[in-house]
């Protein structure tokens, strides 16, 4: 469902991704691991269409369609979801209002009739309860004054709500203690489905103890230098990036 071929991408005139290729099938969970500066976050921004992240070469095919040149909101409406490493704070906009505005914008883009306020509220409440997101949190301005754990739970709540076909989780474990991590991972695992693929980006193997991937890829200097099963993550944890990077070189 996602096919990345020989992807070259620049940020501010500097090439970060240097010929990355990756193929993800329906319902698969792929993990991308790599040292700092290897291009992990760049990949997530290129996939979601952030301005300033320019594709110079290669292609990204998603459900048979090229993503290149598509606006971020168009990608979102087609089911591409990015759980941010640092979810943004938006003062003055209540979380509930934000969720409803975004949800309806996506429905509209897909030509589906918008959901009435009451049904929407019920749906959000049900999903929020599972992630221990309180109704008080939903009333507060989006992510403002939220703890690290609350912000990440809010991201997963949005993922549950928007039901994406491709979910990109960018360093979802960063800033979480073990209890918060388990809660978030449970939320993600509950969303695993045959028609939903996931790309889990992480620096540490720890997260993959809870979200068990089907495939693991090692990203270094803008390219995937090694791929394997979930055991590759353990290998990395044991030997460090250094040895794999140098042996692949």
């Amino acid at each position: 469902m996602l096919e990345i071929k020989n992807l070259h991408a620049e940020v501010g005139g500097k090439e970060i991704l240097k010929g990355l290729s990756l193929s993800i099938g329906d319902g698969e969970v792929h993990a991308i691991m790599g040292p700092n500066g290897s291009g992990k976050s760049t990949l997530s921004y290129v996939l979601s269409g952030r301005e300033g992240y320019e594709v110079r070469q290669g292609d990204i095919t998603y459900c048979g369609e090229s993503l290149i040149g598509m606006l971020p909101e168009e990608r979102a409406a087609k089911g591409v979801f990015l759980a941010f490493q640092y979810p943004l704070e938006i003062p003055g906009v209540s979380t509930m209002n934000f969720l409803r505005t975004a949800y309806n914008a996506q429905l509209k883009a897909r030509g589906v009739e918008e959901l009435d306020a009451a049904s929407f509220l019920r749906m959000v409440r049900a999903k929020a309860d599972l992630l221990k997101v309180s109704s008080e949190m939903l009333k507060r301005p989006l992510n403002v004054g939220f703890s690290g754990g609350e912000k990440k739970r809010n991201e997963i709540l949005q993922m549950a709500l928007f039901e994406p076909r491709l979910a990109i989780l960018d360093e979802t474990d960063s800033g979480l203690d073990i209890d918060a991590l388990k809660l978030v991972a449970d939320g993600v695992n509950a969303l695993r489905a045959p028609d939903r693929s996931m790309l889990v980006i992480t620096h540490y193997q720890r997260l993959l103890d809870y979200i068990i991937p089907d495939f693991v890829h090692v990203l270094s200097n803008g390219r995937i230098i090694k791929s394997g099963g979930k055991e590759l993550a353990l290998e990395l944890e044991r030997d460090g990036y250094e040895s794999i990077v140098s042996s692949a070189a």
Partner: peptide, 29 residues
């Protein structure tokens, strides 16, 4: 904020919708 705009658009809002949302939030008080 360019980051806030991108965040909203990643969630499916168009640029104009995102600006309207952010500015209304800014003015909420």
């Amino acid at each position: 904020s360019e980051e806030q705009l991108f965040y909203c658009r990643q969630r499916g809002l168009s640029e104009e919708e995102a600006v309207a949302l952010l500015v209304n939030g800014f003015c909420r008080d």
